[in-house]
Simulated scan of single mutants.
Amino acid sequence: MTDEVSFYDAIGGEPTFRKLVDRFYSGVAADPLLRPMYPEEDLGPAAERLTLFLMQYWGGPNTYSATRGHPRLRMRHAPFKVDPVARDAWLSHMRDAVDSLDLPEPYRTTLWDYLEKAAYFMVNSME
């Protein structure tokens, strides 16, 4: 066993990730480019999936994998055109969400760097 605290615990655990995702999806809900990429009328299920994924990724419970299996992020996003414009819109809402947490360094930068790299990785169209 280790005495090292996970990133998940260090930034406040589930409440912090829920705040992050809630803020992010409040921006997505009003975004004319991104909102159509979420076919469910209610953004709640998408928000829950992202929350569970991020919590697991950063050292929280493995509920995401237990309920959905391997993340397979690129495959799950393949049906949607994710071009640089969509990526930048996503990043804009996520930047607002990350900033709203007022995390101390280096946690803020660590979280943002991961999210930024993930957004670039998800681009599947240059059109």
Score class of each variant (00 low, 15 high):
Glu14Asn: 11
Ser92His: 14
Phe24Val: 06
Thr67Arg: 15
Val98Tyr: 05
Phe24Cys: 02
His70Met: 10
Arg74Trp: 06
Trp58Val: 02
Arg76Ser: 05
Ala66Lys: 15
Ile11Tyr: 00
Thr51Ser: 13
Pro71Lys: 06
Gly69Pro: 00
Thr109Glu: 12
Leu33Gly: 07
Ser26Asp: 15
Pro36Gln: 05
Arg108Met: 08
Asp96Tyr: 11
Asp99Ala: 12
Glu48Cys: 09
Met37Tyr: 04
Arg49Tyr: 06
Thr67Tyr: 10
Phe80Ala: 02
His70Trp: 04
Phe80Lys: 04
Ala30Lys: 13
Asp99Asn: 15
Asp99Arg: 13
Ala78Gly: 01
Pro61Leu: 04
Arg95Lys: 15
Pro45Ser: 12
Arg35Val: 09
Trp58Tyr: 13
Arg23Asp: 13
Phe53Tyr: 12
His77Pro: 03
Gly60Tyr: 08
Asn62Asp: 14
Tyr64Gly: 01
Arg76Lys: 12
His70Cys: 03
Gly69Cys: 04
Trp58Ile: 04
Leu43Arg: 11
Leu34Asn: 06
Val82Ile: 15
Phe17Arg: 00
Asp88Met: 09
Pro104Ala: 15
Ala78Phe: 06
Leu50Phe: 08
Pro61Gly: 01
Gly60Phe: 01
Arg49His: 14
Gly69Met: 00
Val21Asn: 10
Asp22Ala: 14
Arg95Gly: 03
Tyr64Glu: 04
